[in-house]
């Protein structure tokens, strides 16, 4: 267990090694601010996209039976199996300066690689399965009974979803969202490939950590890393709370 916790402690120790002043100055720096802003922006776009997808996919897969379901499930898992570096690479190949879509993009003056859209695309790719993966098993386990009951009582499809399905999967959904968010904010490999590391422009927090580290500004690197470590801690705490809550709910139900 020490093996797991030690890195977390190390982050905080290293960050404060040269005193609080150094820590604060690293955090308060302009470039850190812009990295935080970009990271938040990326998450704010990526997470809703993947939530919409996850909910739609879970509805189609869990509530209906059709041929090729297993193939579809495997395809949804694909991004988990692909190395983040490759995830970045494919977008470079598609939109980069030697890419297939590049002539058209250049003609229309659209920049994707080494710009924010590329970061968003790559992040969406790597966080793609999270919500769907959480929701599908839960929705499958709950069956269709309650939805059928709602429809037989005259509820429309949309109302059935909002008032019956959604409340039943809300914890699972939240779970998927925070995992998706943690990965979106913390993604490094894929983003590193497409970002171009332009300071103050296309630097997310993890990339900023890398730059500082490679410039031997260790204290500053670790200071920025504490922000991400804090994010990880918050994620874990919310996750544990959800687990605790759902366990209590299912434990209290004597069927």
């Amino acid at each position: 267990m020490l093996f797991l916790i030690l890195p977390l402690i190390a982050v905080f120790m290293e960050a404060f090694k040269q005193g609080t002043a150094v820590f604060l100055s690293a955090i308060m720096e302009e470039e850190t601010f812009s990295a935080v802003k970009l990271t938040l922006l990326v998450a704010a776009i990526t997470v809703p996209l993947n939530v919409t997808f996850g909910v739609a996919a879970a509805w189609a897969i869990a509530k209906f039976s059709f041929r090729g379901k297993n193939v579809l499930l495997t395809l949804i898992d694909l991004p988990f199996a692909v190395s983040p570096v490759i995830a970045g690479l494919i977008f470079v190949l598609l939109f980069g300066s030697q890419g297939i879509a590049y002539p058209w993009l250049e003609a229309n003056d659209i920049k994707i690689i080494f710009a924010v859209p590329g970061i968003i695309l790559a992040t969406t790719f790597v966080t793609f399965p999270f919500v769907a993966r959480e929701l599908i098993p839960i929705m499958e386990a709950q069956g269709k009974d309650e939805e059928e009951a709602a429809v037989s009582l005259g509820a429309s499809g949309w109302k059935t979803f909002l008032r019956v399905t959604l409340p039943n999967v809300k914890w699972g959904l939240l779970y998927g969202v925070i995992l998706c968010n943690a990965r979106a904010m913390g993604e490094f490999g894929a983003v590193s490939v497409v970002s171009g590391h332009i300071r103050g422009m296309t630097n997310t927090l993890p990339l900023h950590v890398e730059i500082l580290y490679n410039e031997y500004q260790f204290a500053a690197a670790f200071a920025v890393a504490t922000l991400l470590a804090a994010l990880a801690l918050v994620t874990l705490i919310i996750k544990s709370l959800i687990e605790w809550k759902t366990q209590r709910e299912s434990g209290g139900e004597h069927v």
Partner: peptide, 23 residues
């Protein structure tokens, strides 16, 4: 339904009222 399919996140009142309130 065989296993009743009650909406587990709603009270008994809300369960019974459901068919009317979704109109």
């Amino acid at each position: 339904f065989q296993h009743y399919a009650l909406f587990r996140h709603m009270t008994i009142f809300d369960n019974i009222a459901f068919g009317l309130s979704v109109r």
